[in-house]
Design a protein around this nucleic acid. Structure first.
Lengths: 183, 183
DNA sequence: AAGATACGTCAATATGACTGACATAAATTT
DNA sequence: AAATTTATGTCAGTCATATTGACGTATCTT
């Protein structure tokens, strides 16, 4: 068992305690605590799904694709590229696998027949629901001691952490009634 | 301009509105909203640093290493592996680059001379402070409309999202006075 | 002296990302 | 009708980050 009690690890001078005091570095208030909490929270949050995905031979990329396709049926390839902030080529391989293995189907657009609208199959939806269930469990544990108003504050915080300058379609939906791009 | 107003994208039946009502899927309450907010919030959060890192020829892996070394001086290689949840080999290359380019130095442990304790150089600290500054700006914008009690709720939420079963050294520090592993 | 530990490194591999180029079909503009 | 643009798919090559497994060396522990 590696030696335990931080014989080496000195607490940084500017980080006087360890918790929430927003230490300063060079006169600037840096939110080390929130930065690190976000890192660890997200690490463990995606870890839930990662574990499960291994059993399917999928990775995080597959999860992101099938998740958003399930949630926003009829998503176009171009929309997905916006949301995931990856390139067509990166998406291509992952999407092809999900199509080949029957998690997603494509339908030609009605108005524009160049478009391939994406829909999750029941198989795909089941996988997404399973993964979302794991993540929901974690969220529920996390908000167990937080009242509804507090949970709304958490949502407000997360929403405010997101760039709003050029929202993609999914974000417009999330931020509800955005209609920024047209009246 | 791609067609705007969701001519294709049907809102999922179980997601009646778009915002916070915690829709249900198959009788189970799934927190789609928080799941997606976490995805977008983290995407944009790390995006800040990613941009800056390009100028240095570094990636996210470098950031994580130099960040934790700066914040917890004297961190051992083994500790870093615990925190980052990667393998020695993955860490090796990144760490070597940071050493070679003078962002980090190693010192032999006093008690145990097998250990290589890691310390950030001023150059390394400057980079970390710069990146943390960007992330702090985003956090500050996000909490601008949230009162101190609300910010504390956000911290509470993030802390509760983190696995506590086998905390590494850094987490023990963050969770302050944990001392779980020994009296 | 023997064994365990901390670290470094080698080889081979996988995944997810990238750029740039090019092809096709369908829509739009001229 | 012809030219252009758009939406998508794909090819080739590359890069960064991660993996497992094996092995070596110095050092600490037993």
């Amino acid at each position: 068992m590696t030696d335990i009690n931080f014989s080496n690890m000195a607490a940084k001078p500017d980080s006087q305690g360890s918790d929430h005091p927003s230490p300063t570095t060079g006169g600037r208030e840096l939110r080390w605590d929130v930065i690190e909490l976000l890192f660890f929270a997200y690490r463990d949050f995606v870890g839930d799904a990662d574990h499960e995905l291994e059993a399917f031979g999928f990775g995080r990329a597959h999860h992101r694709v099938i998740h958003f396709v399930t949630r926003y049926p009829g998503l176009k390839v171009a929309d997905l590229l916006d949301v995931l902030r990856i390139t067509k080529q990166s998406l291509g391989r992952v999407l092809k696998q999900l199509l080949d293995e029957g998690y997603i189907v494509q339908k030609t657009g009605n108005n524009d027949r160049r478009q391939r609208l994406l829909y999750a199959t029941p198989k795909g939806e089941a996988l997404v629901a399973k993964l979302a269930g794991l993540q929901t469990d974690r969220i529920n544990r996390a908000v167990a001691d937080i009242d509804p108003a507090g949970v709304e504050t958490v949502r407000q915080f997360l929403r405010a952490m997101i760039d709003r300058d050029d929202p993609d379609k999914v974000l417009e939906t999330i931020f509800g009634g955005g209609r920024k791009t047209r009246e």
